[in-house]
Amino acid sequence: MSTYASPIAGLPDQMALHTGRAVFTEAYALIPRGVMRDIVTSYLPHWRDARHWVIARPLSGFAETFSQYIVEVFPGGGSERPEENPEAEGVLFVVAGQMTLTLEGKTHLLKEGGYAFLPPGCAWSLVNKSTEPARFHWVRKRYEAVDGIETPAAFVANEQDEPIIWMPGTNNTWGTTRFVDPTDVRHDMHVNIVTLEPGAVIPFEETHVMEHGLYVLEGKAVYRLNRDWVEVEGGDFMWLRAFCPQACYAGPQRFRYLLYKDVNRHAKLPF
């Protein structure tokens, strides 16, 4: 079973030096694991015994399509009313512990690697019935409905049961675990897992219209973000606006990240 990184929480020692890697630029943000501490968590309505690290939210002029939380739920905690926006779709991905998800009247146990797609307006709730805290990512986006195209259905999966689709010509060193068929235009966002084996590379500066959220699940790498090469490791989060150039050199261990991108819709026009 994979080991997924999650926030270290707590507080640093008072003698800790301010030499962290956190940065917010015009094209990207890097939120390293070391700044995801207790005092930056949020508490949201209708959640009990739970706290949220809000690591992305729409900002005018920056990434504008999604929000992303890391949610920690203590034993007995959860929510019967987690999502109050009927236009919001979501993805859950469990990185620690386990959660009981009730989705459209059916109950599912989501363990580490558990994945759930939540279409807009669906009925769902969560509770931690275990004796240990659980942590999961919650990615939210306002669904962009299209006339004549139906809304996708809810589903539950586990990434450890899904194949890695390797990029051609990479000798199975760079690939993606996909939970949705890329050609299924019912979906207007993908939340996938990208895997680079030790020493693998993304060999060109990807520059594209999709916004990205990249949460490093394990390993370390040197990542190109706009003009900069930055070191990243498990537990770091990168937030890229549209057309921010990106590339990667993986480190000595397998490097994997949870990837959000908006897809399959026309660009919005301001008139």
Results as ranks from 00 to 15, higher is better:
G78S: 08
G78C: 05
E80H: 07
R81Y: 13
R81L: 12
P82C: 04
P82K: 08
E83Q: 15
E83G: 00
N85M: 08
E87Y: 07
A88H: 05
E89N: 05
E89T: 09
G90N: 01
V91H: 06
V91R: 06
V91G: 00
V91E: 02
L92C: 11
A96D: 15
A96F: 09
A96P: 02
A96W: 07
G97S: 09
G97F: 15
Q98P: 02
M99F: 02
T100M: 08
T100G: 00
T100H: 10
L101Y: 10
T102E: 12
L103D: 00
G105H: 04
K106M: 09
K106V: 08
T107F: 06
T107M: 10
L109W: 05
L110W: 04
L110V: 04
L110P: 02
K111V: 14
K111C: 14
E112Q: 14
E112V: 15
Y115D: 01
F117N: 01
F117M: 05
P119E: 02
P119S: 07
P120L: 01
P120W: 01
G121H: 12
G121I: 07
A123Q: 15
W124Q: 06
S125E: 12
V127F: 00
V127A: 13
N128K: 02
S130H: 04
T131K: 11
T131S: 14
P133N: 03
P133Y: 12
A134P: 00
